[in-house]
Amino acid sequence: MNSNVSTNRTALVTGGSRGIGAATALRLAQDGADVALTYVQDEEAAHEVVRKIEAVGRRAVALRADSADPEAVPGAVHRAAETFGRLDVLVNNAGIGVLGPIGTITDADVDRVLAVNVRAVFLACRAAAGVLEQGGRIISVGTALSRYAGGPGGTLYAMSKSALSGLTKPLARELGPRGITVNLVQAGAVDTDMNPADGPFAAGQRAANALDRFGTTGEVAAMIAYLASDEAAYITGAEMVVDGGHAA
């Protein structure tokens, strides 16, 4: 995909210190955007991403924001817009997973997962709707497991990510008159620190994919970068599946 972001555009990537978020932040910078990213604990990792972005000639800033705090992510949206003077792209990437049989999931688990995976995304979108420029982009990262076959132990995670489908479509309708697109990327098994391709649960995930391999963070970032580009201006309210054929 040739997915050059227009020069002088700006982006905020939540959870941008590692994994898909870090790859996305760097890819958007390589395509010509200044990038703000949020992190919770990995401050050094976040600043390493900032250094990589600056090395390709773009501005970058790392913002500490715990998505479980209802004020943190909307605050990051406004800080990003103030830092760069505008905001063009919001990537809702930050998320957590608590896995296990439903009987072992605590009330605290439910509260935190829904706070991070659902409430924070909604609040970020609400804040972004007030500051995004004409033709802006909102892109959220979900999971293919919430749309197709999940697995035992994934009830809470899949439920939380399923909410993003319900958010994406009506928000696309609401913001469409301003030329703002809203899309959802449903990622499959991707090689990250949290779910390594050589981890204890990797074999089953590979076997479930038509390509018999894990995806890379760069492959997901490429789809996000495309949706953030001018070339994707006529795509909105869509769920783009990047899952190696898990649903084939």
Rank of each mutant, 00 (worst) to 15 (best):
M1Q: 11
S3V: 13
A11R: 12
T14V: 14
G15F: 07
G16P: 06
G16L: 12
R18I: 13
G19V: 09
T24R: 15
T24P: 05
L26D: 01
A29P: 08
Q30S: 14
A36Q: 02
T38N: 04
T38E: 01
Y39A: 11
Q41L: 15
Q41I: 12
D42Q: 15
E44P: 09
A45R: 11
H47T: 14
V49C: 09
V49N: 06
R51S: 13
R51P: 12
K52E: 06
G57W: 06
R58S: 09
A60I: 00
A65N: 10
A65C: 11
P70L: 01
A72C: 05
V73I: 12
V77L: 08
R79S: 08
A80C: 13
A80G: 08
F84P: 01
G85D: 11
L87Q: 02
L87W: 00
V91E: 04
N92H: 03
N92Q: 05
A94F: 09
G97S: 07
G100Y: 02
G103R: 10
T106I: 11
D109P: 11
V110T: 08
N117Y: 02
A120M: 04
F122Y: 14
R126N: 03
Q134R: 15
G136D: 02
I139P: 06
V141A: 00
P152D: 12
L164V: 05
K169H: 10
P177N: 07
G179H: 00
T181L: 02
L184P: 01
G188A: 13
D191E: 03
D193R: 05
A197N: 00
D198R: 14
D198H: 09
R206M: 00
L211I: 15
D212S: 15
R213Y: 01
T216V: 08
T216S: 05
E219V: 05
I224P: 00
A225E: 08
A225Y: 03
Y226K: 15
Y234W: 12
Y234L: 10
T236G: 10
V241Q: 02
G244I: 13
A247Y: 04
